[in-house]
Nucleic acid binder design. Structure first.
Length: 475
DNA sequence: CTGGGGATGGGGCCC
DNA sequence: GGGGCCCCATCCCCA
């Protein structure tokens, strides 16, 4: 076979034994040949795996044995790449790997994908598969899972993403050449997922399982869905700072971004008084919309799963509640409800002084006491202990802190707006909703009472399922 | 560039 | 189940 020409990636070959001058030429596009060959090779390997032919690698997952080919695993998984490259040189030796961090069912999905390119994702297994893929360092699978989640949730609020989401939401299985770092997807069948609302993925809070790492954030995949780089504790969402408002009840910047934006948030907060009415209306409207979406989110929340972990000494089952969004489990449902806020992005507790919102009342209280009440009896400048007598409260915008008399004199009284709690009770009283005598607004408590700011209880069904929570117990 | 402190967020658990 | 406290991790700011 002679190489005739090269058209980019697709090389055209002429069948040998034929005259190019006398007979019609028969051209073979090697791209098609390659695809067919890869497909056939994969089928053969998969058959060999199922028949346990030439399998030189044993993988034990929670007691269930899987047989596979080390070269295939090596090519598909960063974890196995590392494991096998560190293993014994003797290629004749069988390699064993043991996992307890994911279930055999999950590994079956992973293994099937490796050998077929078909990823059998469902709304019930996608989180576990993504977690396992993260563990096994299979970025392509992670991306498929992420896209699956995104599409399932119909996250897009942008018109230009609607089409993509629609096409993806119809897809239940993702296909790819095994080991390929591509995110091409094909429709394989109807989607079994009832898409949760957008806010779920718009949330970018910390992920206890940490199943989305840097790689995932870096690879936005061919779908073009934008993600933001974030802290190692990843986020499911893709949200830019610009689209969020710290005053938003669903203010959900990813961990790092959120903190990076803290300064900006503070600036915005400090400038909030200057915002015009139009902006207020916009914020209010956006808040209402997001609150509605939050309600929708809770209404369609994946079921809260009560799980039975290991048994205690008395052979009594240890009940734990599994987060439907991550692998985290907690002992109490109330704790899970609290934990869910880091996924939903709920921030039901706004500070009335700076409009910053918090996920917990105690955080709001701590913030308020520290920032706005100057509860710390420590001089901000020299850090010495101060009392009501030896120090004064200094106001700086909505911030209050204490300074000792010496530091105040050193800095100069004229430059610092002086205040003291004993002299001015209006703000703490107003903000704390204490029996203040202030006008109108003073009747507000420091935690917002707007209905749309407080998400209702999910009321999710409780499902009992047997899981191994040994890893969680270690946390 | 680095270390310390402050602010914030999240988990465990007690009341 | 909610409130609250404690602890720890992370990030940002600043000296």
């Amino acid at each position: 076979m002679d190489l005739v020409t090269d058209l980019g990636a697709s090389k055209l070959y002429r069948a040998s034994g034929e005259s190019s001058l006398q007979q019609p030429q028969r051209w073979f596009n090697t791209a098609d040949i390659t695809v067919a060959h890869q497909s056939n090779l994969l089928k053969q390997l998969n058959q060999q795996r199922r028949q346990e032919l030439f399998c030189d690698c044993s993988v034990l997952v929670e007691g269930q044995l899987f047989r596979a080919h080390r070269n295939v695993l090596f090519a598909s998984s960063g974890y196995f790449r590392m494991l096998l490259s560190q293993g014994p040189d003797g290629m004749s030796e069988t390699v064993n790997a043991t996992f307890d961090v994911f279930s055999p069912e999950t590994f079956t999905v992973i293994l099937d994908f490796i050998y077929s390119g078909l990823l059998d994702l469902t709304s019930h297994n996608v989180i576990e598969v993504m977690s396992a893929a993260s563990y096994l360092q299979m970025n392509n699978v992670i991306n498929y899972c992420k896209n699956f989640i995104k599409s399932s949730l119909d996250i897009s609020v942008k018109d230009e993403e609607n089409e993509r989401c629609l096409s993806l939401s119809e897809t239940c299985s993702f296909t790819s050449g095994a080991g390929e770092e591509t995110s091409d997807q094909q429709q394989q069948g109807p989607c079994s997922v009832s898409p949760p609302p957008a806010l779920w993925t718009r949330d970018s809070s910390r992920n206890q399982s940490g199943f989305i790492g840097k790689d995932l954030d870096q690879d936005v995949s061919a779908s073009g869905i934008k993600t933001s780089s974030s802290s190692p504790a990843n986020d499911l969402g893709a949200e830019t700072e610009d689209l969020q408002d710290p005053q938003d009840p669903l203010y959900t910047l990813p961990g790092t971004e959120r903190r990076r934006s803290r300064g900006a948030a503070k600036r915005r907060a400090s400038n909030s008084n200057r915002s015009n009415q139009h902006e207020d209306l916009d914020i209010q409207e956006a808040r209402t919309q997001k609150a509605e979406k939050a309600e929708e989110l809770y209404a369609t929340l994946p079921p809260i799963v009560g799980v039975i972990g290991h048994f205690n000494k008395d052979s009594n089952p240890i009940m734990r509640f599994k987060c439907p969004f991550c692998t985290h489990t907690v002992k109490r449902k109330a704790d899970l409800k609290r934990h869910l806020r880091c996924h939903t992005g709920e921030r039901p507790y706004p500070c009335q002084a700076c409009n910053k919102r918090f996920t917990r009342l105690e955080h709001l209280r701590s913030h308020f006491e520290t920032i706005h009440q100057a509860r710390k009896l420590v001089c901000r400048k020299c850090k010495c202990q101060v009392t009501e007598e030896t120090g004064h409260v200094v106001c700086e915008g909505t911030r209050r802190y204490r300074m000792c008399t010496a530091c105040i004199q050193e800095v100069g009284c004229d430059t610092i707006p002086m205040d003291s709690l004993e002299e001015s009770n209006e703000e703490p009283a107003l903000l704390l909703g204490v029996d203040g005598e202030e006008e109108g607004e003073s009747k507000r408590t420091w935690m917002v009472t707007d209905d749309d700011d407080l998400a209702e209880d999910s009321g999710a069904d409780l499902i009992i399922q047997q899981v191994d929570d040994s890893d969680e117990e270690l946390q």
